[in-house]
Design a protein around this nucleic acid. Sequence first.
DNA 1: TATAAGAACAACCATTTGGTTGTCCAAATG
DNA 2: CATTTGGACAACCAAATGGTTGTTCTTATA
Lengths: 105, 105
Amino acid sequence: MIERRDVFQAIADPTRRMIILKLSHGPLNITKIGEDFGISKQAIAKHIKILNECGIISMSQKGREQVCEAQLGQLDEVTDWVTESRKLWNQRFEKLDKFLKETKQ
Amino acid sequence: MIERRDVFQAIADPTRRMIILKLSHGPLNITKIGEDFGISKQAIAKHIKILNECGIISMSQKGREQVCEAQLGQLDEVTDWVTESRKLWNQRFEKLDKFLKETKQ
DNA sequence: TATAAGAACAACCATTTGGTTGTCCAAATG
DNA sequence: CATTTGGACAACCAAATGGTTGTTCTTATA
């Protein structure tokens, strides 16, 4: 099986984004995370697994509870990519500006 | 069918991210975009459609060619969400810092 | 100790996704 | 005019996705 898990795919799902948002206020166990979502705890656990696999959240056992904590440093990959794309995109306009200034004379 | 197209889902696919990167250097037609990807032009056209539907690229007819241009302002939604999540996440540490300073005395 | 609660594991299911091929049409080009 | 070329449309397919239920196991708790 090819490990296709990446951060971009992880944040693509709205439920997972909600989980991240919820966890950004502080660590919670799986049951707590699942509250207020209209889906089964098992479904939540699957989302948690995906988020964990790509490093967005970390897990720690505490008695019978599995405590999840956000590790949002992993989101750098996303902002880096957006920033890089936009940098190139903006350079395009700068080149056009330069061209327009040169031909104006 | 529910319109589930959003920017997060659009950038989840690596091929689509490559397309965006390619277009951030300047507009291209569908055939040009498809070059160097090992997949069919039809597959590329489908990706283009998705990117267009969520506003990341715009299309304009030019003779028989369909010219695609990046509209990376739409990526704000992504950076905004990441920024907001991280803001909350950092506040968590600030609260902890405050607590530690207060109890140290 | 009996029971409730947190979570893992597995099997299953419908829908979506990312890709394919084939046909067809309009616009360039020899 | 004949032929490429750019692209649209449709049908189809395998795999992935997001969800379900049922069982089991361990840890708390009344």
